[in-house]
Structures are given as structure tokens and as C-alpha cells.
Design a protein around this nucleic acid. Structure first.
Lengths: 338, 338
DNA sequence: ACTGGTACCGAAACCGGTACCGATACCAGT
DNA sequence: ACTGGTATCGGTACCGGTTTCGGTACCAGT
């Protein structure tokens, strides 16, 4: 029943050998034009689909690029994946992505599993890995590119930016714009190490400006706009007065915006809200929410370039870090009178 | 150099045959406890990774479930994929997803490519396919489940809801709640057939209520919050007065909300805004934007159930449609005085 | 006629596993 | 001692392609 057509069938139908059929379909040379069309025709006629498993096993090369991401509900990683997909389009390579859900054990399994498909390259998120995962990556024997984060020692290529510095710079910028009573709201810092780095950087930046966080709300769980609204409400109710709130991302900040908006509290005049990433919906309320624009798509593209380059030359891909600097957007906070 | 360890190496190191090593690692029976541990130890020692290519080729079975989605920047499909991933977790099966970007040709290529990896099942988005794509799916020889849309003739299993009816029902609901001067804003209906079906249903629903759309804005391009704001601004400026706007999705509606909010035009008292899907950020402004809550994650889970069931029994998966009814949420529109 | 080169084709080995089946060892039953 | 059953193992034949290498066939050059 489930008997799929094989190359042999094509060859038979075309009246040539398996090898000629193989070459014809792959566009190899050493095949006459006449046989090429005969084979192509035969393949179409009998509905031949090809078998990547066999081809990759025999050819010792897959057209797969493994991509390991923590989560796809976070639109940030969708953007990265989009950048990767676009950059890969037309190269004959194909991304295949694995989700770790910010879980180190699952990450190990996902990477191990990826590797067993013998991909041509691997793009993984972050720089912090447990020892055994590091070993896996180091011994993978294929180009490995780490993305999103440049704080830490990369194993192979590395494209991203310093989250610590994003936090630090934002703290300094806020301080320079007369924000003094600052609170923080972040979700899932226990798992999201990059959000935590931004937090750490933010605290350090404040400290260097002679300030410190007045309140910190850092529950577990996934960040969302709704969650941002709820946490903002709690914070606003329980905390001493604030003139600014730093959120672990734009989603939470947007939730805060909605809360204050419904209360007719002017944003950012009465309270400044600061997110991270520069997502689409921030642009829809221009200037209201400050943020740091991160080059997500570009990171994906740059990662692919690294893999491609390593692929074209020798395998190992020497450790090299490429920083794609994010850009602070203070919005209306920058224009307020001091 | 790039000489990866093989099962033979493991067998050698463990002092057993290749077969015993294979069985030991897969947890097959007919292996003594002593050999199991010897093999496992050897595998760990030499850093054996396994080779899915060879295993799947020989075993005539992969652990892959192909998932074909139009786009991942649209959070809706991320949710579907999340549902699929979760449902698959623990089954030993693994999703691998392909993106079509709403392009029929690319869709064909993606599916063809998927099939050549010999997946155990296939989940594709939508019911409308060109003839050759249909042929591909029909002859795939594996369980095929179509998701998101139940308007149309499914090839195998089918899980989703009627987008036509979502539009129709919303139109009726709005009419019943005294909305009469209604406009429409949608993006990319040329490619997004499901959004178009909602539009068609909406028009039909209005007509049956004795109404018709006063203005229609339907440009190409991807919908986004920012885009929603811009299009709303245009529409509001150029169109006769409206008391309600139906958008092709929540993102656009949220953009509209921001526009009116900045203008101090009360939503939904002065103008009702209606999106689709019931995304997180809608919940952050409770009641303001009406929407239709769609069970995205559940669709993904149900699709997996179908595949799993077909996998457990006979292969073909007879055509069967499962409707997961969405739920209208009119928010404050429902509570307005007539 | 013979040689060398080029264009094209096919047989066999192989990629790294698994399925299948036969072999061996050992023990209880008669 | 012989038979049959169970537990454990290994040899061999694939899976469906690609690589490698060795032919043919045909033509120009000498």
C-alpha cells in the first residue's frame, strides 16, 4: 500500500539506469539532454517524490540548518526565525527549528536530537549552556552560531548584542532625563537569562547614576500584555510613587500603558514606561513607550551569513563575535522639560 | 576530521555486535542487562550521537510530523504550533515546520520537500489548494490533517472552524446591537483566504440584516498594529461617519483603538471596534475591542490527536471534520443602551 | 590503423543504521 | 540422554539514494 516510488522506478520508466536518473534529477553533468528530459518526464509521470533520508545518508550532507529557540510565542524569536528563513531562501538550505521552552534539559535533548539529523549548521540561542551541552556543541563538527546574546564566551560564531548593556544604557538614559523614582517589572527572569541580564545591567546603570530601584516585581511565568497590566496595577497600588517603570519587555510595558491610560494618568508625563525590543505595537502609540530597538531579523540574517561562510570555507568556524548594536528610543521621555 | 562515531564504534568499544548495540540503545528486548549498561557506557564514553538519517531509512519510519503554516509572524500560528508541540511532547514524535508565506507555489514546494523526509504525518493549514498540491496530499500515503478552516472539502482529517461563519455571526451580532454604519479594514486579503472568508461572511451577514458596508479598506501587505492605526486614520478621515469598524484581525483593531484613544473618541461608545481571534492584548483593555475568540492551541492539539489516532490504527485517515467553535466576545458593545 | 580525449552511462560499493532470521547456550521436563 | 522452550546474540539483507570508478562509443589527430 504505502509503497512510494523510488529512483529505481523512475529509471525503469525512463529506460535508463538508476545512476543516470539520479544525475538527471539533480542536474549533475554527464547526462545527455535527451535522457534528462526522459527522466524528468518519467519522474513527473509516476509521481516521484525523492527521499531526503536516503539522499542525505549517502551524500553525507543534509540541507538542514538547525535552529534552537527558547519559545515561539515570544514574537521576538519569530522575527529571528523570519530573518533566518529569508536569508536561507534560495541557498538550497532549509531551517528546522527546535523549541526549548527556556528549559536547560530540554535544550540538551533538542540539540542532541538536531545533531542526529546531521545538519550542515546549527544556530542556537544564547551563550550560557550547561557543561554537557557545551560539549555537545563543541564536538558537533559543524559550524555553530550562537545568537541574541554577546555576554559570555561563545563556542563558535556569535551574533547579537549585550543585554547587560541594554539595561545599563537605558538606566543611564533615564537618569539623564530626570527619572529618579524608578520601579521594575519583569516576568520569568528565573528562566529568561537575557531578561535577567538586562535587569542586572539596569540596576548597575542606576547605581552608577546614584540611583536605585524603588520597587521590583519579578514573578515567574510568561510575560504578556495582560500580565503587564495586572502587574502594573499591583505595583502602582502597593509601591511608593514612581515616575518611571522599566519592564522586561515591550509586552509588559504595553499592558502598563493601557492601565495608566484607563486611569487618565499621562504617559510618559506622569509616569514613564520603558520596554525592550521595539515591537510593532509600540510604533502604534508613537513616543508613549520608551524602548530599545533590537535588530532581531538582522541577527537571524547575520547568523545565516556566518554559517554560509563557514560552509563555503573550512568547517570549524573560529570563535568570532559580531555585535549588532540596538538603539535606544526614549520617545517623549526625551522631550520632557527637566 | 568530521568523522562522527558510528554504532559500529560503540559496538567495538562495548565488545558486542552492532545489532546488540543497536538494540541496547533503543531499549529493545532480547538484550541482557549487563550488555545494556556496557553499551550505554560505551556510547557515552566515545560521544556517540546516533544518526536519524540512517535509522529512519532503515526503519522505514521517521519520528517527524510535518507542519505547514503560512507565517509565524502572525502570532495566531505560533499558538497553533505551540498546541501541536505540546500535544506531541512525550509521544516520541517531533514537529518540523515549514513556512509558505501565503504563497501557493512555495506551499507546493514546502509540502513536497516535507514529504521527501517521509514524515509520519502531515498537518497543513487551510482547505484551499491548487490541483497539484491536492494531488500531492492525496497521494502522500500518510495521515494528512488540515487545520484552521472547515469551509471546503478536506482531503483527510480537518480541524478548525468556519471563517465565513465567524464573519457572518459577527455581522449579525453587531446588527442586533444597533450598529448600522459599519466600515471594514483588512490587510492582505489577496493572500489570506481565511481573512477573505471572514469578510465574505461578514458582508453576507450584514446583507441578511438589511445592512451593507459603508466603506471598505482592503490593501495588500501584512497586518500589524501600526498598520491598523494608519488605515483607521485614513478611513476615519475619508469615510462617511461610522459607528463601527470590522477589522480582519485583532492587530489592526488594536491599532484603531490607539488612534481613537489619542483622539479622545470613546471606544466602543462612539465607535465600536471589532477584531478577530481574541489575542492577549485584547484582554489588557477589557471590553473595548470586540472579537471572536478562536481556539488556536486547541486546534493544534486536536490535529495531533487525529494524526496519532490514524497512526495507531490504519494509515489513510478517512475524511473527517471536527469543528471547534469560536466564541464571540462583544465586550462593551453588548452592554450599550440601544 | 592506432592513439588519446571527451561525452555519456552503469555496476558495485557504501552511507549507518534496522528487520529478520538463524545460531547458540542453558535449563527444565520426561 | 533427548527434546523443547526461553533468553540472548550475531550475520545478512536490505532501506534508497550517491560516490566512485571503470567501461563504451565516437571522434579528431597522426
Amino acid at each position: 500500500m504505502n509503497k512510494r516510488k523510488t529512483l529505481q522506478d523512475v529509471a525503469l520508466a525512463a529506460g535508463v539506469s538508476k545512476m543516470t536518473a539520479s544525475r538527471a534529477l539533480r542536474g549533475d553533468k554527464d547526462v545527455s539532454q535527451r535522457n534528462i528530459s526522459k527522466v524528468q518526464e518519467a519522474a513527473r509521470d509516476i509521481g516521484y517524490t525523492g527521499n531526503h533520508l536516503a539522499a542525505s545518508l549517502a551524500g553525507k550532507q543534509t540541507d538542514l540548518i538547525g535552529v534552537v529557540l527558547p519559545n515561539l510565542n515570544n514574537i521576538v524569536f519569530s522575527h529571528v526565525l523570519t530573518g533566518i528563513t529569508e536569508a536561507l531562501y534560495g541557498t538550497g538550505l532549509q531551517p528546522v527549528c527546535g523549541i526549548t521552552d527556556y528549559d536547560a534539559d530540554r535544550e540538551y535533548e533538542v540539540i542532541r536530537n538536531m545533531l542526529s539529523w546531521r545538519p550542515t549548521g546549527l544556530i542556537v540561542t544564547g551563550t550560557e549552556f550547561p557543561e554537557d551541552t557545551q560539549k555537545l556543541l563543541r564536538e558537533a563538527g559543524i559550524p555553530v552560531v550562537q545568537i541574541m546574546d554577546t555576554d559570555g564566551d561563545p563556542i563558535g560564531g556569535c551574533v547579537g548584542f549585550s543585554h547587560y548593556r541594554v539595561g545599563y544604557d537605558m538606566a543611564q538614559a533615564l537618569a539623564q532625563n530626570s527619572k529618579t523614582r524608578i520601579g521594575y517589572i519583569g516576568c520569568g527572569l528565573d528562566k529568561d537569562t537575557r531578561a535577567r541580564k538586562r535587569f542586572d545591567g539596569f540596576e548597575a546603570g542606576l547605581k552608577d547614576a546614584g540611583l536605585e530601584l524603588i520597587t521590583i516585581s519579578s514573578p515567574t511565568g510568561a510575560p504578556s500584555v495582560k500580565r503587564g497590566r495586572e502587574l502594573t496595577e499591583e505595583l502602582w497600588r502597593d509601591s511608593p510613587p514612581l515616575d518611571c517603570i522599566y519592564y522586561s519587555n515591550d509586552d509588559l510595558a504595553a499592558g502598563g500603558y493601557h492601565y495608566f491610560n484607563d486611569l487618565d494618568i499621562a504617559v510618559p508625563q506622569q509616569v514613564g514606561l520603558v520596554g525592550c525590543h521595539g515591537l510593532d505595537f509600540i510604533s502604534a502609540i508613537p513616543g508613549r513607550i520608551a524602548t530599545t530597538r533590537t535588530p532581531r531579523k538582522e541577527i537571524g540574517q547575520a547568523a545565516v551569513q556566518m554559517v554560509l561562510q563557514a560552509f563555503a570555507t573550512g568547517q570549524p568556524l573560529e570563535p568570532r563575535t559580531q555585535v549588532l548594536q540596538p538603539k535606544i528610543d526614549l520617545g517623549l521621555i526625551a522631550q520632557q522639560p527637566t
